[in-house]
Amino acid sequence: MTGEVRSLLIGAVCVALAAAVPYVTDGYWLSIALTAMMYIALSTSWALFSGPTHYISLASGAFFGIGGYLVATGMSDYNQSFWLMMFVAAVVATLLAGLIGLATLRLSGVYFVIFTLGLAEMIRNLVSWVQNNFLGSRGLYVLTDFTDAHIYWMLLAVAAAVFLFGWFIDRSRLGFALKIIGNEETVARHVGINTAWTKVVLFMSTGFFAALVGAIIAPRYSYIEPNLVFSPELSFLVVIMALLGGTHRLWGPLLGVIPFTLIWEAISIWVPNFTTLFLGLAFLTIVYFIPNGFVGLLEKLRHRSVA
């Protein structure tokens, strides 16, 4: 029990420290911290599902886009409040994730990856089509009084919620079931685990959190169009950062997000034409040299120093 109290305390201290960032800096570095916080929430939530199950989800971009787009449509076209639309977006994305999960998660992982691979692009096409043909092709404005600091704190709250959720899962039957599924799905079924339901529930949680993040980020752009928020690239970045950090520990993705956000930022500024190439090299580096992420490297080092 003391171990649990201690990890909760450490978590609380980290959140408090992170919350102080806007007091220390604003402008450029705050915007980088904001981006990092966004990916911390997304990658950690991604890893909660994909880590134990080994199902690689590329749906983050789609759920994120739903969050941003629904907030924009609701505020711009229907005069709804930001908070209501944030809630609606999260519910819609969760339900969509549930439907996708029911259709694909009973099958092999390959089908799931393929299905999520083009999902953001497909939804973007659909949304653009609906907008162009039925709603008139206007841009959508998200006008709020939020400053970067506000957005940052909201993202921090989501990230903290993801960690708390992960911490809770790890101690629940659901988390234990997920671990067993990741080991041997056949055994899981035959000891009485509803494998489909377990996977779908976790996948829905990634949809929920990604849509929340997308909704919260929307005010940062003020002007939203489908091409901006339904970005397939985002899905890949989430996967890379999580894998780079390591998915078998709750805090693993965090270790990947921070350095990767900085490098990504640097590359986008200095050599913007090489971002795609770099993304590819990052994937290859992870697969061939750090298959268990930074967490795996750390654990190996500790193992060696003990032995």
């Binding site: 990741g182 055994v187 000891v191």
Partner: peptide
């Protein structure tokens, strides 16, 4: 068929 990533104990706890 065992659960290779878990301890002996957890393999049985699973059941």
């Amino acid at each position: 068929r065992i659960l290779p990533g878990l301890s002996v104990m957890d393999n049985v706890v699973a059941g």
